[in-house]
Amino acid sequence: DARQTLSNFVKKYCPSVELVGQADGVKSGVQLIKNEAPDIIFLDVRMMDGTGFDLLDQLDKITAHIIFTTAYDEFALKAFRYSAMDYLLKPIDPDELMEAVRKATSLVDKKLKFNDVYAHLRSNLKNSGNPKIAVSDAKGITYVNFDDIVCCRSSDNYTVISLKNNSQLVATKALKEFEDVLSGLPCFRIHNTSLINMNHVVRYIRGEGGFVIMTDKTELEVSRRKKKEFLEKLGELQKL
């Protein structure tokens, strides 16, 4: 039983967390949350009588930090990643559980953070074509439409994100993390230092690797080893 396994893991690996109850469905879960007012909720996406989203929609206000648990579901996982929503993939890994709990307990303002993230998660579950991407910077989280992102460029351990309105965001994540989050969307890593939104490519200039001109007039180098794959991707987009 996955719920019992999670309970055992929490007791074993997160001894500072006190378990106050368990529920196997939406109705019983809503009642348990209202009675106990927990700080952290481990919430399965699929429940006996509905989904974790159904449960949250029945709460007047959400004051707990939610950590979703889910079996592999590519669509749901992408929505979680785009939205910076905390989740654990079954079978649950103890190290990932401990990190999720550490992160949850370190948040000072759980309510505001979760409500904001959850609103964007619901939006992304409904709109997979142009999801809102969570960009963490030194001040907090900014959500930007994928279509507004022109390119992402590495700067040490940070990533500079150029938007189509000519503004920039400096994210506190490495470029590789954005490459992982945006996989499945029309993006391509043309160089160790650059990840581009293929929909914003205006022109390709031939060369050893070549260069691309983006809609914001940025000129970016294509590495020689990425050239063949990039041109194939560009050709596929032009056929659509």
Rank of each mutant, 00 (worst) to 15 (best):
Q31K: 15
L56Q: 06
P131L: 04
Y143F: 15
F75A: 11
E36T: 15
Q4R: 13
H191E: 05
I33R: 08
D109W: 05
I62Q: 12
F178I: 08
T51V: 04
L89C: 02
Y72F: 11
V150Y: 07
F114T: 01
L59C: 03
G184L: 08
L125N: 10
G140Y: 08
S83P: 01
F42H: 04
F9D: 10
I149R: 05
A104T: 06
V17C: 12
D180E: 15
K103F: 08
R153P: 00
F80Q: 05
E74A: 12
L43A: 06
I40G: 07
F230L: 06
A174S: 12
D95W: 01
V202D: 10
E99V: 06
G52E: 08
A100H: 02
A119F: 11
D24Q: 12
L185K: 14
R102P: 00
K226P: 03
P131E: 07
F188G: 05
N124D: 07
T5H: 07
L88G: 03
G52T: 04
H65T: 09
V181M: 15
V135F: 07
R189T: 08
N35W: 00
L175V: 08
N115G: 04
K217F: 11
V150C: 11
M198W: 06
R206L: 02
I205A: 10
D147W: 01
Q168V: 10
K27G: 00
L97H: 04
K176Y: 08
N199V: 01
A76L: 15
N197L: 02
L32F: 08
D147I: 09
G207L: 05
H120P: 03
V108G: 02
F188C: 03
R203A: 09
L32G: 04
K228Y: 05
A37P: 00
A100W: 04
R122Q: 15
A37F: 08
V26F: 07
K126D: 13
V17W: 03
E96G: 00
S136Q: 14
S223A: 09
L163R: 13
K110G: 04
L169Y: 10
E232G: 00
K27S: 12
T142K: 14
G129P: 00
T142E: 13
L125F: 10
N145H: 15
L55C: 01
D86N: 13
L19N: 02
G129Y: 10
A134N: 04
D180T: 15
K176F: 04
L185P: 06
A171M: 08
L169H: 13
R203E: 15
G209L: 07
S223Y: 04
V20P: 02
